[in-house]
Design a protein around this nucleic acid. Sequence first.
DNA 1: TTCGGTGGTGGCAACGTTCCCATACAAGGG
DNA 2: CCCTTGTATGGGAACGTTGCCACCACCGAA
Lengths: 346, 346
Amino acid sequence: MAAKAPTIIDVAKAAGVSKSTAARVLAGLPNISDTARERVRAAAVAIGYERNTLAAGMRSGRSGLLGLVIPDISNPFWAEVARGAQDRAAAADLSLMVMSSDWDPATEARHIQALRRARVDGAVINPVSDQVGDLPGAGTPVVLIGSAAEAFAGIPSVGSDIHHAVTLGMDFLVSKGHDMPSLILGPPSRLARTRFLNVVRRHCIARDRDPGDLAIESADYTVRGGRAAMHRLLARRTVGHGCVFAANDMMALGALMALHEAGVNCPRDVSVLGFDGSPIGACSAPQLTTIAKPAREIAARAVSMLIDRIDRGTACAIEELRVHLPGRLVERASVADLSAAVRRRA
Amino acid sequence: MAAKAPTIIDVAKAAGVSKSTAARVLAGLPNISDTARERVRAAAVAIGYERNTLAAGMRSGRSGLLGLVIPDISNPFWAEVARGAQDRAAAADLSLMVMSSDWDPATEARHIQALRRARVDGAVINPVSDQVGDLPGAGTPVVLIGSAAEAFAGIPSVGSDIHHAVTLGMDFLVSKGHDMPSLILGPPSRLARTRFLNVVRRHCIARDRDPGDLAIESADYTVRGGRAAMHRLLARRTVGHGCVFAANDMMALGALMALHEAGVNCPRDVSVLGFDGSPIGACSAPQLTTIAKPAREIAARAVSMLIDRIDRGTACAIEELRVHLPGRLVERASVADLSAAVRRRA
DNA sequence: TTCGGTGGTGGCAACGTTCCCATACAAGGG
DNA sequence: CCCTTGTATGGGAACGTTGCCACCACCGAA
């Protein structure tokens, strides 16, 4: 039978002091004689005392727990996010509970409730439901991540700068001699889709193209979905020697698969540009050229911000409510350089 | 300012009963009049009562928290494991804390300590350090997963049946007309490596081949490592029209990359067989043929077992201390069918 | 000498829950 | 009518920690 875990009272007894003194030593508070400090420390080590965070949390109102709700932990991009958050939380001696909402608002709501019940000190959430207003448990600090974050007024958020990132992609395609790309976007209901699309549209307009001519297919952010979307694009025959810009890397990988299946050579016949920067994109053939979002950094910043809000209480002026981190072009092999081809021919 | 979360006392007050009665209703205990039950339920909903699991945990000794320690959350295989564990835990109304040890025993130890401090009711651990004996916090139920699990006497474990899975792979290669594969294995110190290798050796012996002739390279289970290992294999020039069996999918994908870089066609010139069944293997070109381990199921079973042990206390005869789940061949496109080629030539 | 300040310490209440025990009342058997 | 049995409820302790308050001794200043 496992002996009950030693408590601070056991430590105090072993050190021959009161539990208040022991508590003060263990909490690192001042006004303690060196002898007492030493003896308590020794006693704690000797009997293998381990602070009961549950009890401490109950008294202090802090659980030492943080929550992270993301759409899909099995997507490498989100796995990176989880990693970043995990590391940052551990650095602050906080534990992180990660939950996958599976792009399902109901699941998301359940997870958030579970977090609330666990009395997390705060949560980083990537909202799946664009319209949910009562995300945070009353009074629980929340920091949002992801592109839908900005739809929530008053809740701070960290995300990639979508405008910048999409523009990066469009400019890159142009620099390689491509015209308007066909698009594989996320589900119609999501805000992220609209924002992505609008940047592309603006880009089209700036280059005197009709945004209405854009070939657009929707998918659900999965490889399977991206593959089906690419097949639909191919069936439309609007993709000539063109290129495809997918709204995430999983769908871009799916597009690569579809092209391969259809016997269309990428990048020679069709170029594919991804959007995420999943490390896994380096494994495809051809290796996926993509706009990398700083996943770990986004998560780390979000957790930092969250900790900040927890420590400073809810009542504080939040100047930098929105943090935008720039994306980065990762040029690999899935986008052909038509300008070079043209030059070579000349 | 957020109003303090309502307690069970608030509920009792609102319902006009004592907190004992309210507690009994909320806990679903018998011996409660219908009127009292109804009023308490209504009051709880009305004031938005949410049980404080911290306080409950302190009193009952159950935190409602489970831990999961895996080597690398950004590896899709482990992400699947996390998903399976997460889902199973949620089904039991338990929360899961996932931690990545990064293949580092020190990090692993830190995570385990963090779990112990959080007073998790139990933990599922994939031990990175083969020799660590004091994994579990004194008396905390633990279930091990992964191939090193069996090194720990007395601790139950769930894992894939390595012997079966590797044999599956070897038999498949033989059936496709391949001879002994070159191997890309994990780091030399790991038990998993030895076990994998020994099955291959046995297979060689059974087919009158000298296991000493096996070309073996080691890597660290990453794509990058697998790629470097494949380059080393190519440099050795021992890989003719042969095949490579990698000990996980990430390294297999790395091998695919290396082959592509070296201008070696897979599967025509060299076949590659993976080992994991990461969904991401479907995205490579050629798509990775692999031995799939039932990641989600392993995790789910491990969590089930853990819950079982928690509920029944530590004092119980554990008949099925070791659970082995069979692997499954996922045939895609990275292994050439030489027998067919031979047949065609004839 | 007395008084206020201060460093070191112990006592005690509180956090929100669960669980055990005590109480109250009704029904039923002797 | 009393005593037992059972059901419905209330009271209060306990879980392990934190944080406030009080206490004691000591020191320097008035």
